[in-house]
């Protein structure tokens, strides 16, 4: 019982890694198709990124530089915990800078900075099946994918418009990949959907509890579903980031007091810091010296 805690590089044994890599290769070969894989029990709870962690563990090498974000931020607790896990079991270099990372594991966001060739974005996925809430049965949804029967997906969008006057899906907005499979982009805000389209980076999706891996290879068409007369639109914010003044980024709302005071700041903390370092300032940015004290 004393030598209990000897683990392989990146926790998973090599056989398991090979199994996951095979699933990843298959996923890349069939963009958007959910490949079943024998997801392992991980030393973190299901629903907390076990799929993403397994994908990362399977592709991670000693020379990789890893960045982990949750909600766009490097310092949210779960991101910290997953990053610490890989430092511990793989002793791998980590970074918060998007452009320095070779592998970025994410939950719920795509970094604002454009990803480049050679980078891999690993998404943590809770429910990989875009049709799940229209059809609960796995046997049926697999058939629908196989036969490309996606009418039901548009029924949902139709209902949205009939009820609200516009498509009221704001995150996990379904996309069609390479003109074939309808795919769930994981619960990223639809703001990030356009970033998936023709991305230079490889995008891998891991769902541990549901035991599925899927992928969008670099330079692949990713189209958000819509109607010709109700085209897909992303969220727009009325004001720029209060700290770095950035427009056209996704913002988090921070409640300042109990009197309705609030501010909007970049959800991508690395992007925000980088801009501030380069002299950009928003309306509520503390002068540098004060902040340092």
């Amino acid at each position: 019982m004393t030598d209990l805690a000897t683990y392989n590089f990146a926790y998973l044994d090599e056989q398991t890694k090979r199994m996951i890599r095979r699933a990843i290769l298959k996923a890349i070969a069939i963009p958007g198709y959910q490949v079943p894989f024998a997801s392992r029990e991980m030393p973190m709870p299901y629903g907390w990124g076990t799929g993403g962690v397994q994908v990362t563990a399977a592709i991670l090498g000693p020379d990789d530089v890893l960045k982990v974000i949750d909600q766009g931020a490097d310092d949210t607790t779960n991101a910290v915990s997953i990053r610490a896990f890989f430092q511990k079991v793989a002793n791998v270099a980590v970074t918060t800078h998007t452009r320095d990372a070779t592998i970025i594991q994410t939950r719920h966001r795509i970094p604002e900075e454009k990803l480049t060739e050679g980078q891999v974005l690993v998404y943590q996925v809770p429910i990989p099946e875009p049709l799940r809430f229209l059809e609960p049965r796995e046997t049926e949804t697999r058939k629908m994918h196989a036969l490309e029967e996606y009418g039901l997906m548009h029924v949902k969008l139709y209902e949205d418009i009939a009820r609200n006057g516009h498509i009221a899906t704001t995150y996990a907005y379904p996309v069609k990949v390479a003109g074939r499979y309808v795919m769930d982009p994981s619960p990223t805000p639809k703001f990030d959907n356009p970033k998936m389209h023709m991305s230079e980076a490889l995008q891998l999706f891991g769902a541990g509890r549901e035991k599925r891996i899927y992928a969008v290879p670099p330079h692949t068409e990713v189209v958000s579903l819509d109607f010709e007369d109700y085209p897909f639109e992303i969220q727009k914010f009325e004001q720029p980031c209060a700290l770095c003044g950035a427009h056209d980024v996704y913002l988090d709302e921070v409640v300042l007091d109990d009197k309705g005071g609030r501010m909007f700041v970049c959800s991508d903390t690395d992007h925000c810091e980088d801009r501030r370092d380069h002299g950009h300032a928003g309306a509520m940015l503390a002068p540098k010296k004060e902040a340092a004290e």
């Binding site: 709870p45 629903g47 076990t50 779960n78 704001t170 996990a172 990223t188 709302e253």
Partner: peptide, 16 residues
């Protein structure tokens, strides 16, 4: 795991 993951931050989705 999945029930308890609801306590993880969801503020990006919630913001949307």
């Amino acid at each position: 795991g999945f029930v308890e993951h609801l306590k993880l931050p969801h503020y990006v989705d919630f913001q949307a």
